[in-house]
């Protein structure tokens, strides 16, 4: 019985740990990294739109 409770508690703690690590930012370092990644993605989207804009035509086409 004790072993079962122990196992359940361990699993719950592991889940707590995993959710804690993945769902929120815990440090400035993580925030900086996340900011860098997000800004890269925004840049990619901006560049994609710029490419579409260029492909739509201009004096050079």
């Amino acid at each position: 019985m004790q072993k079962k409770i122990l196992a359940i508690v361990m699993v719950l703690l592991l889940l707590l740990l995993i959710t804690g690590c993945t769902s929120s930012i815990k440090s400035d370092e993580q925030a900086v990294d996340e900011m860098g990644n997000v800004s890269d993605e925004i840049t990619d989207i901006t560049q994609d739109l710029q490419t579409i804009n260029e492909d739509l035509g201009s004096s050079s086409t």
């Binding site: 690590c21 815990k26 440090s27 400035d28 370092e29 993580q30 925030a31 900086v32 900011m35």
Partner: peptide, 20 residues
């Protein structure tokens, strides 16, 4: 924050975090 290494495995040089 200084205990963050438990999760990340890295000691954070927070001095530079302000560049955000």
């Amino acid at each position: 924050e200084s205990w963050g290494f438990l999760i990340t495995g890295n000691v954070v040089a927070e001095g530079n975090a302000g560049i955000l």
